[in-house]
């Protein structure tokens, strides 16, 4: 049976993890490769690296990082953050990334999704969508939720599927950082609306939130950052808790 996926997300700046991590067993708390290996060994199903570097050196440091991760880590990983062209994607996939995630660039140039899917296959194209509710309507936002657009979440989700996205990573800006649980109602609507996997993001605070997003939110995967980085939730415990709730998960060891 296909299992539900647990995906830790690492924010990267200049090749280093930025969100403070609280791993006593890390030799270098800012080394994304070491952190990635730990997560892989603890039973994470995939990893996401979100690059927030804004300098001109961005591409080179990111490509170096991708190479190092691919060298060491034996589970799939996705790279996102500022990817805006076929060339960007090509160099990341050739360096060993399994998937790329595009966000603002897809909103600004929706045809990019078609081009990427045609060239590399839908399976490696994740479209990340940030949205929040305005007057009860879920609206797509850019720049980490700061800039609103006139695009409705559900219209956009349908469109990205039709254009060839292989997965949707949906972050609710209303829930992100609250630790009050995922946006399960919107997630369930999305899951019914499109026929590609949905990754839930934003709001993880405890293990029950993951149970809820898989059962009520019908999510195919759940992504979180700080609850894992600060060891508030151990992936092994989380997997066991999900299993106890009848959710199909991979417990490797």
């Amino acid at each position: 049976m296909l299992t539900k996926r647990i995906i830790p997300c690492l924010d990267i700046k200049n090749g280093r993890t930025v969100k403070g991590v609280n791993f006593v067993d890390l030799r270098d708390a800012g080394d994304p490769v070491e952190l990635a290996e730990i997560y892989a060994n603890e039973g994470a199903d995939e990893l996401v690296f979100l690059d927030i570097t804004a300098t001109e050196q961005k591409r080179k440091t990111l490509v170096d990082l991708v190479m190092h991760v691919a060298e060491k880590v034996n589970i799939p990983f996705t790279v996102g953050g500022g990817i805006s062209s076929v060339e960007d994607v090509e160099i990341l996939l050739n360096s060993g990334a399994d998937k790329v995630s595009i966000n603002s660039s897809a909103v600004k140039n929706p045809k990019l999704i078609n081009e990427l899917a045609a060239k590399f296959g839908s399976q490696c194209i994740v479209v990340a969508i940030d949205a929040k509710q305005i007057d009860g309507e879920w609206m797509v936002h850019l720049v980490g939720g700061k800039v609103p657009t006139a695009i409705k979440l559900f219209d956009w989700a349908k469109e990205v599927e039709q254009r060839g996205a292989g997965e949707i990573l949906f972050t609710s800006m209303d829930h992100d950082g609250t630790k009050n649980g995922f946006a399960n109602k919107a997630l369930a609507t999305l899951s019914k609306l499109v026929n590609i996997p949905i990754i839930a993001s934003g709001g993880a605070g405890n293990m029950q939130h993951f149970v809820d997003t898989f059962i009520d939110g019908k999510a195919d995967a759940a992504l979180a950052a700080s609850v894992f980085h600060f060891k508030e939730i151990e992936i092994v415990d989380l997997k066991n808790e999900l299993k106890r709730n009848g959710i199909s998960v991979r417990i490797p060891f």
Partner: peptide
């Protein structure tokens, strides 16, 4: 079949 989510992505047995 289209009744499934396609692509299948993830860990299966």
């Amino acid at each position: 079949d289209n009744s499934l989510k396609v692509p299948q992505i993830g860990w299966n047995q």
